[in-house]
Design a binder for these strands. Structure first.
Ligand SMILES: [Zn+2]
Ligand SMILES: [Zn+2]
Length: 347
DNA sequence: ACAATCGGACCTTCAATAGG
DNA sequence: CTATTGAAGGTCCGATTGTG
């Protein structure tokens, strides 16, 4: 297990490097799992642990808002799957059901959930540790806005989308036009269906061990991670990943095992300073632990109230609904915003 | 160092096809 | 009619290139 925290000598470590230390590029930030890739993309590649640490509380909403994987104030359980990725897609790391709120107990966040040491990196909990590289499914919006489409950048379902808001072109944010699929195209014979499980799709789980009791995905592609949805948004609002298909027997619904987010207790001291290269050595000693818990949701708000377009095309963080207890949290948010993406909607 | 570009991997959708 | 296939059409990751 590895802990990445301020004051351990890693404070100046760019966040992006954390992923190379971590198991799967997931930071446990203030009790929540956030893909490092995501952080580096949104906050800038050279954001250090220290910076992140000091800014996170203030940017908590924003991060919660931006990071589809940041299961903060949303209602509903936080799904987590044993997964990893060889090409860590920031948004692919975590996932949670977004439309299954009704299925799951509410999960929320409360201020006390912010541990003094807010940055930890945890490996997967035992039992959730993937036995093989898993391919995480990326979710796309149904219809990107024209700006995002042109820029080949990620869009979202909101209009204006976050990216357009960020670049101050909210008014230009409109759905791109989709062409209709042509009909009447002959396809030729399909390959034979053979009534039962054929040899073509048993690639998953060579060991035949369903992860965490979860049956392997029927397709030949690696299993995908569950959707850990955004916070406080309607289903699909920021859904980076599709909700677990419900009611489809033997399907992905079973791929959304429960995962518990908690205010992370500081790891045992003996585990706090493992050497580099132990990324694959997990879980070497004591297995990571996850603590089922519940959080309050102090600032669950719809997206539009978070983001304010400014003349300078920056995005402004509305004042926090409450003040953070720790003085360190009181630090003024420097001009950090959401660097990491390009300026100006282009092309 | 950071922003813009864009090739192409990946995802979603849905008409064509197959089976009962 | 329902299930499955599989390709069209789309999204957007992330490597590359451009800019100051
Ligand atoms: Zn967009
Ligand atoms: Zn837009």
């Amino acid at each position: 297990m590895r802990q990445v925290e301020d004051g351990t000598g890693r404070g100046n470590m760019p966040v992006r490097d954390v992923q190379h230390e971590g198991i799967h590029g997931i930071l446990l930030v203030m009790g929540r799992y956030v893909p490092v890739m995501w952080l580096t993309q949104r906050l800038g590649r050279r954001t250090t642990i220290t910076t992140l640490y000091s800014l996170l509380p203030l940017y908590f909403h924003y991060i919660a808002l931006l990071c589809p994987c940041f299961p903060s104030a949303r209602q509903g359980a936080v799904g987590f799957n044993s997964m990893s990725s060889n090409d860590p897609d920031p948004d692919d790391i975590l996932d949670s059901p977004s439309t299954t709120d009704s299925l799951s107990p509410p999960i929320t966040i409360h201020p006390l959930a912010y541990p003094p040491m807010s940055l930890h990196m945890y490996p997967y909990p035992q039992g959730l540790v993937p036995t093989q590289p898993l391919r995480l499914k990326r979710r796309q919006v149904k219809n990107a806005c024209t700006n995002c489409q042109k820029a080949c950048k990620k869009c979202d379902d909101a209009r204006p989308c976050l990216r357009c808001v960020k670049y101050g072109v909210s008014e230009e944010c409109v759905d791109s036009q989709r062409k209709e699929r042509r009909k009447g195209i002959k396809r030729g014979p399909y390959k034979k269906r053979d009534g039962k499980g054929n040899a073509s799709d048993q690639v998953d789980d060579p060991q035949g061990l369903p992860i965490n009791g979860v049956p392997a995905q029927p397709s030949g592609s690696p299993p995908t991670a569950p959707y850990m949805g955004p916070v406080g948004y309607p289903p699909g609002y920021y859904g980076q990943y599709p909700p677990p298909p419900l009611g489809k027997p033997g399907e992905a619904a079973s791929f959304y095992p429960q995962f518990f987010i908690t205010s992370v207790p500081p790891p045992p001291p003996s585990l706090q300073h493992t050497q580099e290269g132990d990324a694959q050595a997990y879980p070497p000693q004591s297995p990571p632990q996850f603590y089922p818990t519940t959080f309050l949701a102090p600032y669950a708000q719809p997206y539009p109230s978070y983001v304010v377009a400014r003349p300078d095309s920056q995005v402004q963080m509305p004042a926090a609904p409450y003040t953070y207890p720790s003085p360190v949290y009181g630090k003024q948010p420097v001009e950090m915003g959401i660097a990491g993406d390009h300026n100006g909607v282009d092309k």
